[in-house]
Design a protein around this nucleic acid. Structure first.
Length: 418
RNA sequence: GGAGGGAUGGCCGAGUGGACGAAGGCGCACGACUCGAAAUCGUGUGUCCGAUUUAUCGGAUCGGGGGUUCGAAUCCCUCUCCCUCCGCCA
């Protein structure tokens, strides 16, 4: 959420952000409501002041045992007027906030408006095969790492089920990533998989993306779509002492997405699924430092791929590809050499104070106070990492070599052909 | 699931219709004292909204929302959360 005063004072900037992010918001009405609101507040506060004064006098007179009918009459009329203004005001405010909520975050000046994504860097060497390689899916089927058909029986399609060394590899990757990040200064958290409406609102998934979320109607809970939601909301409605910042969390969660509107795309295999695992990095930082923290957050996610020796590239997203709440976003994509595709495994964003204002997360640093800046990024999402690992490490004989750094977690150096 | 008790400033805690934005204490900041520190004494100490000549002024704020009243921390309704006991339970 942006501040109404900011919108008022930066109309052109805000309009540009709305347009470039592909949103449509009625700014004219917003500004009209804003003017009306401020006028009504002034009127109401003046009336309240009058009432306060008379009520105080009534108290004094009563203590002296004197009649107060005339004063009570007058105060009653003022009270009625206040009630009338209040009613009008709350209508206006409701309208105003409804529109204000629809305004996306304003991008950082360094972000290009649209066009091709800018490739910041590419790491590692794309693999060339001297044999006929299997795609990750054929390979996983051949050596029974996945049991997608039976997963369908349990839930529905795109709820993958892992098996044997596949299940073990998934678990090994999660533990490897958690350990790597905690050894580099992140505090591990393990949070609920269900989140309430307020939390979804706080990080900006609602109201826009409600259709993409699984919802438990009876209790009005949502299934966690990304650990960004539970982890960021850990500090909802808090004022954090400046000396405790930055706060850096890493957490594993299962993630659930309905992927409404993407039927028929990527329905096979692991590329787009309704349930997946993810290790997430979340930072709460002082406003001054958030763009430096974005760069180090990116590096912290990249380190996983360097350690696993999987080629990847980093892209800066243009405004039209950025999420609603983000001010600047990098994507990390891994190279799947058999599919011959880049697959997104992480999206790393600085939200500045956009989420903090919604979730009411402040800081106080001596005399300076304000909203913290929040950042997050996957570190990393599992399914596509799983794909890239298989394709980058499959052997001619149909076995899969385990990357050196992952061996202690996997407990073996090879997943053998069966 | 049943019964009862709670929620007050950064923290603890008093306050059952008017002089209460809220006693007292702790903490914190500044000052005095001191060679320095501790102790002591003094002063100050939140947040939000609006106006502004940006020094200030007005309003709101006692878990959230609604109501009664000229006037609510205080009375009523409702929701949320916490605690205690009972029941159930991996």
């Amino acid at each position: 959420m942006l501040e109404i005063a900011f919108v008022r004072e930066n109309i052109e900037l805000v309009k540009k952000a709305i347009k470039n992010k592909g949103e449509s918001v009625d700014i004219t009405s917003l500004l009209e409501f804003d003017t009306q609101r401020r006028g009504l507040i002034q009127k109401r506060d003046e009336k309240r002041r009058e009432r306060k004064e008379i009520s105080r006098r009534i108290g004094e007179l009563k203590r002296e045992g004197r009649n107060t009918n005339a004063e009570e009459n007058k105060a009653g009329k003022i009270a009625e007027e206040i009630k009338r203004i209040d009613k009008k005001l709350s209508e206006i405010e409701k309208n105003l906030y409804e529109i204000l909520m629809q305004i996306p975050n304003v991008p950082h000046p360094s972000v290009p408006v649209k066009g091709d994504k800018i490739i910041i860097r590419e790491w590692g060497k794309k693999r060339e095969f001297d044999f006929e390689p299997l795609s990750y899916l054929d390979l996983a089927n051949a050596i029974s790492l996945l049991d997608l058909k039976r997963g369908v029986k349990v839930a529905s399609s795109s709820f993958p089920s892992y098996k044997g060394d596949g299940a073990r590899l998934e678990r090994a990757l999660i533990n490897f990533m958690l350990d790597t990040h905690t050894s580099r200064g992140y505090t591990e958290v393990f949070t609920p998989f269900l989140v309430n409406r307020e939390s979804m609102f706080g990080t900006g998934q609602l109201p826009k993306l409600e259709e993409d979320m699984y919802r438990i109607e009876k209790d009005d809970f949502f299934l966690n779509p990304t650990a960004e939601v539970p982890i960021t909301n850990l500090h909802k409605n808090e004022t954090i002492p400046g000396k405790k910042l930055p706060i850096k969390y890493v957490g594993y969660t299962a993630c659930f997405r309905r992927e409404a509107g993407s039927y028929g795309r990527e329905t096979k295999g692991l590329i787009r699924v309704h349930q997946f695992n993810k290790v997430e990095l979340v930072k709460f930082v002082l406003p001054d430092s958030s763009y430096n923290e974005l760069e180090t957050l990116l590096q912290d996610a990249e380190i996983i791929l360097k350690l696993l020796e999987i080629p990847y590239r980093v892209k800066l997203l243009p405004v039209n590809d950025m999420s609603f709440a983000s001010a600047k976003t990098y994507d990390i994509e891994v190279w799947a050499p058999v599919l011959k595709r880049w697959l997104e495994v992480s999206s790393i964003s600085n939200f500045e104070d956009f989420q903090a204002r919604r979730a009411n997360i402040r800081f106080r640093d001596g005399k300076i106070s304000g909203y913290v800046h929040t950042l997050n990024g996957s570190g990393l999402a599992l399914p596509r990492l799983f794909i890239a690992l298989l394709e980058n490490y499959e052997q001619k004989d149909g076995s899969v070599r385990i990357p050196d750094k992952l061996v202690p977690y996997m407990g073996k150096e090879m997943i053998d052909k069966r």
